[in-house]
Design a protein around this nucleic acid. Structure first.
Lengths: 336, 336
DNA sequence: TTTCGGTGTAAAAACGCTTTTACAAACTAT
DNA sequence: ATAGTTTGTAAAAGCGTTTTTACACCGAAA
């Protein structure tokens, strides 16, 4: 049923190599012959079989992308960046979204050799040796928001962002600052907490254990954490949530508790999700260069593909992209 | 560099067909031989080349998905549905996101024969003949939120949803009801408008032209539309925006205008995006069964693949999934 | 002892392309 | 007129699998 290159060749009265050369603009082909081939292609509605082509050329022009399956605009922005970078180099995206908790089989197909020329793994819950295995198969991998030796990766300056944010809170006069944690084993969370601690320490302040409330980054977890903080005898003046999702929960919890943000207590977050400037009060937060993160990772991955093709090699290293403080109203500063 | 089935065969001292049979659990293979092959696979870290496998089997276990490149949680839910349905049948997703406005080349790769066994097109800006061409190549296509004769498709009951919503507004006592349109050439928009018109007509009411303000579904467009409506001499009592995004804009516009929602004017939307229950006031809207939409479309697509394999054929038809009214506070009803 | 169904394996033919090699035919230079 | 160079095309060799076909080998039945 499907029409192949042979059908075209027969129709045009040439050999398949001629058809191939016409289709790929390779070598010289007599103008008349070319026209006959093109005509045959048109008449038969021929489309190359991409699979066969990839098999022959050893190149798929596809990039694999593994992302956590969470409806987070932050990830969406990363994907946009990846997509743009891929498109710029004429690559398509093969996306596998990894559910929480990770079920191997769902994205394992992506790893099967041959399908993708390169991969970008975003905050993926994947064993290091699995990644190494993929790399050994000849597929360059770039990690986003995840760190492993000898694998190139991109992240954001969590430490600097948190530091900047806390500095801002201190400047506004707050002294009793609490933290709602993300999933505690993530480096992001650790770095943000470290930024907070260090900044406080630099100002001679301390972060008591009671001021660390556990969340898990997910929707809802900030609510309970905030309730705990609100009931503390020496209630904090400002609460820094490890991400915006939880900061919104915290604001909701505060309202439900009968207090006002930022009048009674300031709440700030991290990520700058699009919701952040919609809520009431608009959320002060740390913006991550999500799009950049995606764009640069994908670009690097494809660059590695390219340099490898020329026999070169790019040294793996980790790059932290800078974060940006976004001051809105939830911190008590009266920026618009 | 990459290890192939030949390497495994050599190492195990068997022929490649034996290796293949072991890997696919086909036919009987002597237990000892099988063990030797498996051992060789392990030692060499062999992974099958998926490309070659797909070429040989004429089946990729991949499903193509085209979605508009907009950060809309609604689409995200659809994708989740598609993903789940695909995963359930052991399929992977090849996602192409179509930017606004559509640039052909970005997702055209998906159409290239061989890469996907089936496709789901979500609200895609694609010519009918292009779709037909894909189908002729033997790849079943299912449309979501888009209608073409002789192509199976899923949509939501836009008419019913709008009707239901307007009925609700009428029940609340509003009589002067205005509409902020979506992109005017879409069927969704037309159906919602028709639902509104009919419902008003059933109650002996009319929709004056001045009560139809143009938007384009996109972020921001509802703001200007609302401004127009607010300045009308006989200001509407309630405004029905063609989607939530614009409804949120409308609420913002109303606030900026110095009026109160829902005190001075009610605002409702369509879609039930996740933002809808975060904003102040929480938005009354029509929920679409986004997840279901995705799940059912993907399931159907794969079912067609299957039945086709058995020589059968499924009649293409359009299915509308029911919508659901979500009453929050922006309509003036004091539901929580 | 010959014939006959299983078994287990190898060889070869797809799958649909690209690319290299080889070779005519048609030119240009001598 | 002959040798040397383009130019255009065909044939064949991959790419890495699966699957079909063929065929030894073995024990059991005749």
């Amino acid at each position: 049923m499907p029409v192949t290159i042979f059908d075209v060749a027969e129709r045009a009265g040439v050999s398949i190599s001629t058809v191939s050369r016409v289709l790929n603009n390779r070598d010289r082909v007599h103008a008349a012959t070319r026209e006959r081939v093109l005509e045959a292609v048109r008449e038969l509605g021929y489309q190359r079989n991409a699979l066969a082509q990839s098999l022959a050329t050893q190149q798929t022009n596809m990039m694999g992308l593994v992302i956590p399956m969470v409806n987070d605009p932050f990830f969406f922005e990363i994907v946009r960046g990846v997509e743009d970078a891929a498109t710029a180099k004429d690559y398509s995206l093969l996306i596998a979204s990894q559910p929480y908790p990770a079920q191997e089989h769902r994205y394992l197909n992506l790893f099967r050799r041959g399908y993708v020329d390169a991969m970008v793994l975003i905050a993926a819950d994947i064993q290091e040796h699995e990644v190494k295995q993929v790399i050994e198969q000849g597929v360059p991998v770039v990690l986003v928001q995840q760190y492993h030796d000898s694998i190139p990766s991109f992240g954001v300056d969590n430490y600097g962002g948190a530091h900047m944010m806390v500095r801002h809170l201190l400047d506004l006069g707050y002294r009793r600052i609490a933290y709602i944690t993300g999933t505690d084993y993530t480096i992001d969370n650790a770095e943000r907490l470290r930024g907070l601690r260090d900044c406080l320490a630099e100002h001679g302040l301390d972060l008591p254990d009671t001021y660390i409330a556990r969340g898990d980054y997910r929707h809802g977890s900030g609510y309970d954490a905030m309730k705990l903080l609100l009931q503390l005898p020496d209630r904090p003046e400002a609460v820094f949530a490890a991400n915006d999702q939880m900061a919104l929960d915290a604001i909701r919890a505060t309202k439900d508790y009968g207090l006002h943000v930022p009048g009674d207590i300031a709440v700030v977050g991290f990520d700058d999700i699009s919701l952040a400037h919609y809520v009431d009060p608009p959320l002060t937060t740390v913006a991550q260069p999500a799009y950049e993160l995606g764009y640069q990772s994908a670009s690097l991955a494809l660059e590695i593909v390219n340099t490898r093709r020329n026999g070169c090699r790019i040294e793996p290293k980790h790059v932290n992209l800078p974060t940006r403080l976004v001051v809105r109203r939830s911190c008590g500063a009266n920026a618009k």
